[in-house]
């Protein structure tokens, strides 16, 4: 089957259009319309009044990371390094150690995420075989006054709860 060729009519070849001035004025009328609309009633602006009005985020939103726990409170992570291996920006740093609680043989003794390097691609979440790392904290504004405090440790990651109900998160394909 041959590709269908459709000749698109070229715009801008009429005299008036080539004169440019008329088109400039047309364009300017459009922008002026917007200007007056907003000037006369600025409640019509297409803006969100952040930070007072926060955006509603969905369960699929990739926010700051967290590490999940089993129902009995033990760490789900088994320090398999899959997230670190998959991380395209190399922002995950894990150190593993022995584990004796019967869940696994291995657990992280250090789990650092350098949020300054993270690109929030979510590959770590996809790579995780244990559903131990998630990006469902709903935290989208990650700021700090120092570089050091942008590196999250194991404790920080475990402390933050998820922002969504389990079924909602699962529905999001997580």
């Amino acid at each position: 089957m041959s590709i269908k060729v459709r000749t698109v009519e070229r715009k801008g070849r009429t005299f008036l259009e080539q004169l440019y001035l008329v088109e400039v004025i047309k364009g300017m009328t459009v922008t002026l319309g917007h200007f007056f609309r907003n000037l006369l009633d600025n409640s019509r602006l297409y803006v969100r009044h952040y930070p007072e009005v926060k955006p509603e985020i969905t369960a699929r939103w990739r926010g700051r990371h967290r590490l999940t726990r089993h129902e009995d409170g033990s760490v789900k992570c088994v320090a398999c390094f899959m997230c670190q291996t998959n991380c395209p920006s190399n922002c995950i740093m894990i150190e593993a150690g022995e584990r004796f609680d019967g869940k696994s043989e291995k657990m992280p003794t250090r789990f650092d995420i350098d949020l300054l390097e993270c690109i929030y691609c979510g590959y770590c979440v996809e790579a995780c075989p244990m559903d131990a790392i998630r990006m469902d904290t709903g935290i989208y504004s990650v700021t700090s006054y120092s570089r050091e405090s942008m590196v999250l440790g194991l404790e920080d990651l475990l402390e933050t709860p998820g922002a969504f109900a389990e079924e909602e998160y699962k529905k999001g394909g997580g």
């Binding site: 922008t31 917007h34 200007f35 907003n38 000037l39 600025n42 019509r44 602006l45 297409y46 803006v47």
Partner: peptide
């Protein structure tokens, strides 16, 4: 501010 209003911003 003019720029903002032209572009529907604040």
């Amino acid at each position: 501010r003019g720029a903002a209003f032209f572009q529907d911003r604040a």
